[in-house]
């Protein structure tokens, strides 16, 4: 299973997903969120949802010098914080900029595809679903 953006055009920019993701870890606010909503160059043009796409062969894991990013079944990665030194190379390797940064822990924040945010999305933008066949697999 992985988190999918069903239709970003339905997004109103409420950022409730961001609050949910942070709350999942026991915090208020948006400081720990692994999903971000921002405007496409001004609110009038609509919104973009930035979140891990669950690559089957993740570039972020390849560049980690400490092997702190372990491939996740279903795509994406799981961070082993005890191995991570906070070098930030993974962030640069992600071309959709879906690796965020925990300023307190000085470590990356990466979606674990739990689907908690999708439960709170009021407008059907997000869903946890099986990887769809039509998604091209970068590994091939």
């Amino acid at each position: 299973m992985r988190l999918s953006v069903i239709d970003a055009e339905r997004c109103t920019g409420c950022q409730i997903c961001m609050f949910a993701c942070t709350r999942r870890l026991g915090f208020a606010g948006t400081g720990k969120t692994a999903i971000h909503i921002k405007s496409v160059g001004g609110m009038e043009r609509g919104l973009s949802v930035v979140v891990c796409r669950a690559c089957q062969d993740p570039p972020c894991a390849k560049v980690c010098p400490e092997d702190a990013l372990v491939q996740r079944k279903g795509g994406g990665v799981i961070l082993n914080p005890s191995k991570c030194t906070g070098c930030g190379l993974c962030r640069e390797a992600c071309i959709v900029s879906a690796i965020f940064w925990d300023d307190e822990a000085q470590k990356p924040i990466i979606c674990v595809h739990c689907g908690y945010c999708a439960k709170y999305c009021p407008h059907g933008v997000l869903a946890l679903e099986e990887r769809r066949e039509e998604v091209p697999d970068a590994a091939k």
């Binding site: 109103t12 920019g13 409420c14 950022q15 009038e44 009021p122």
Partner: peptide, 16 residues
Amino acid sequence: GRRLACSHCPVACIHI
């Protein structure tokens, strides 16, 4: 053409 919301609000009352 579009509805928008304030941060942390499910209502999306802003009509564009």
